[in-house]
């Protein structure tokens, strides 16, 4: 028997009444092993205006490149304290921020190594389906051989690579540009 997947629809403007419960800007509970980092940025629309009603979902591996097998901190079977899943909404200025540990590099089922990255789903009023993208890190030699990054035209790769905001503090900046010059690369997965 073959069924057709249910059609996507927008989250609309009022998702926070339900999705707010799992909003958590702390993906690693402060006890996970690894290099602490913070990523902050803004979501901007085609007029360059901040999007105050977007929600981002993050999915990431632990510092060893292993994905948690359970989304909950207390039950995590990989890195203690890392749930791997984060959900953050933008504020009235279109800003979001989350903290975690930097993911390690992993390998896929065919043994190809990939560069450290986070997955991001983006939902908002005006998006009938979610957008999917990745955040990579600067000064990362493994970026050069990453399978997915390699599919992106070279002139657009910078949209996927976070910029160092404060090296000592481990903070990065990464923006979501929905349209126009520097439009973020989104993937079909």
């Amino acid at each position: 028997m073959s069924l057709v997947p249910t059609s996507s629809q927008t989250v609309g403007p009022f998702f926070s009444i339900a999705l707010g419960r799992l909003c958590n800007e702390n993906i690693a509970a402060g006890t996970a092993a690894g290099e602490c980092m913070a990523i902050a940025g803004r979501v901007l629309d085609g007029d360059g205006m901040p999007v105050p009603d977007a929600v981002l979902e993050i999915w990431q591996a632990d510092a060893r490149g292993i994905y948690p097998r359970n989304g909950e901190k207390e039950d995590s079977s990989t890195a203690k304290g890392l749930c791997g899943f984060g959900r953050v909404a933008t504020n009235e200025h279109g800003e979001f921020r989350f903290v975690s540990v930097k993911p390690g590099s992993g390998s896929d089922t065919e043994g190809r190594e990939h560069a450290p990255h986070l997955l991001v789903s983006i939902f908002m009023r005006g998006l009938l389906t979610r957008l999917m993208t990745r955040i990579y890190f600067p000064d990362e030699p493994r970026n050069a051989n990453d399978l997915v990054l390699g599919l992106v035209p070279e002139e657009r790769r910078d949209t996927l690579i976070a910029k160092v905001a404060d090296r000592a503090a481990g903070s990065f900046q990464w923006n979501v540009i929905l349209q126009g010059t520097d439009e973020t690369v989104f993937f079909e997965w």
């Binding site: 629309d45 085609g46 007029d47 205006m49 999007v51 896929d108 089922t109 190809r112 990939h114 908002m124 009023r125 005006g126 998006l127 957008l131 399978l147 997915v148 599919l151 992106v152 929905l178 349209q179 126009g180 439009e183 973020t184 690369v185 989104f186 993937f187 079909e188 997965w189």
Partner: peptide, 14 residues
């Protein structure tokens, strides 16, 4: 004003 204008990039599942 919110839909991306450039085509999505199809990528394999890792």
């Amino acid at each position: 004003k919110r839909a991306p204008t450039l085509p999505l990039i199809r990528a394999p599942h890792t």
